[in-house]
Amino acid sequence: MELGARKGRGDILPLPDAPSPMNTAQQLLQSHRSLALFLAKMLAAYAVWFILYDLWLLPDGRLDLWLSTVAATWTADVLHLVGVGAVAEGRTVFTHAAGIEIVDGCNGLSALSLFVGFVLAYPGAWARRALFIPMGLAVIVATNVVRCASLLLISGWRPDLFESVHGFHALFVFYVVIFGLWVAWTHVGERPAEPALA
């Protein structure tokens, strides 16, 4: 059957072997071996990061400090945009009502690594991967900035809610955003090339 052959009213039959995000997933789930290989790739990427972070980056502290400072500065900027006066000093952001400190565990670094691990392991073109990873990292950093801004507002408005919202945010917001980015990568990474017109 030819590419683009039409069936009925307007629906194009896919090529049997045309790659799509869905049949890639099916292929990965097809055997224990392919699934194990995919998971092993992901875990290997995370293990390298975990060791690198634990042994070098965490004791060094500069990466965490930089990311926390950037998040604090941008949090203050976002609050300015919505008309709330805020000041950033290092890792700390203040409003007139409250302040939060963006500590190592809250700067989103682990979320960034979680995102990257999947994109490295899931099949896709390297050129697209090289573009997609920085975009995804930017989305996660922006998510963290919005999260920090909302947490700061909540700590000034209802300090009693801070702990529960803090836990909720860490769990849901990052996971939902990362899941969404992974879904996007399964579509973007291996999108079939457009068929050449005859």
């Binding site: 997933a25 099916q26 995919f38 992901m42 293990a47 682990s110 979680l114 999947f118 899941f179 879904v183």
Partner: peptide, 25 residues
């Protein structure tokens, strides 16, 4: 490591694969 990356890998990646495969079906 097992409580962070291993659990997160299992908990997010496998449902995603199952979901994509289900949609393909």
């Amino acid at each position: 490591f097992s409580q962070t990356y291993v659990l997160e890998t299992i908990s997010l990646a496998i449902p995603l694969l199952l979901w994509l495969a289900g949609r393909a079906e």
